[in-house]
């Protein structure tokens, strides 16, 4: 069997699992589900699998993507996995990858604020022409102006819908939080939910 793409969601309590935790969880869930993954060669063999665009701690998502080299497994891999996964992680579909992960260009987000007022303040912030944010890069700490790399889609009540650049540069929910932190008076709990992965020409990536 070739490469299999597992689309899954990460919700509720599972939002607090780190990227490594999720990898570890899948690694074991595959075994419990009777799905065999190809291992790398060498002294310390590890299963060949990867998750695109690691989600930040505390964020939820309904559009996670895990690609794995499956050797064999049951007919209904999604069903078998779902019986083996912890609360909050659920496989939505397992199938052949249609496009390579590098084609993911944008991510669509829903940000929920405690009330209309803060949502509207946040909207104003995100419309500013320049939003410098400190970011860790391979060369150390740098500053990135995220304004050109984010796009506000809509505000409905307490919710903002946004597009974030997924690649060169990558903008994530944490950067939005940082941008808001510098501009808003009170610290706020923002519920961040990743809704969709998109290609350069805004098609849904699957």
């Amino acid at each position: 069997m070739p490469e299999v793409r597992f689309r899954f969601e990460k919700r509720l309590r599972a939002a607090y699992l780190s990227h490594l935790d999720v990898m570890r969880t899948f690694q074991r869930a595959f075994i419990r589900a009777g799905i065999r993954i190809r291992h790398s060669e060498g002294f310390n063999p590890h299963p060949k699998m990867s998750i695109a665009l690691p989600l930040q701690l505390g964020c939820e998502s309904v559009c996670e993507v895990l690609d794995a080299s499956v050797l064999d497994g049951p007919e209904d891999m999604a069903g078998a996995l779902n019986a083996a996964l912890p609360e909050g992680i659920r496989v939505l579909a397992a199938g052949q990858p249609l496009r390579p992960v590098r084609e993911i260009a944008w991510t669509e987000w829903s940000l929920r604020f405690p009330d209309d007022e803060t949502a509207s303040e946040a909207e104003t912030v995100f419309r500013l022409p320049s939003l410098p944010v400190e970011k860790k890069t391979k060369r150390g700490l740098g500053t990135l102006d995220i304004a050109p790399h984010i796009e506000l889609l809509a505000r409905e009540g307490t919710e903002l819908r946004m597009l974030l650049r997924a690649d060169s540069p990558t903008v994530n929910a944490g950067d939005l939080r940082k941008a808001l932190g510098g501009k808003l008076e009170k610290e706020l709990p923002v519920r961040c939910l990743r809704l969709r992965l998109l290609t350069e020409n805004r098609e849904t990536f699957q």
Partner: peptide, 14 residues
């Protein structure tokens, strides 16, 4: 979101 290793405090494991 602000504490170290929050997964220790959520339960919900398999």
């Amino acid at each position: 979101p602000k504490v170290q290793k929050p997964a220790r405090y959520t339960g919900g494991e398999f």
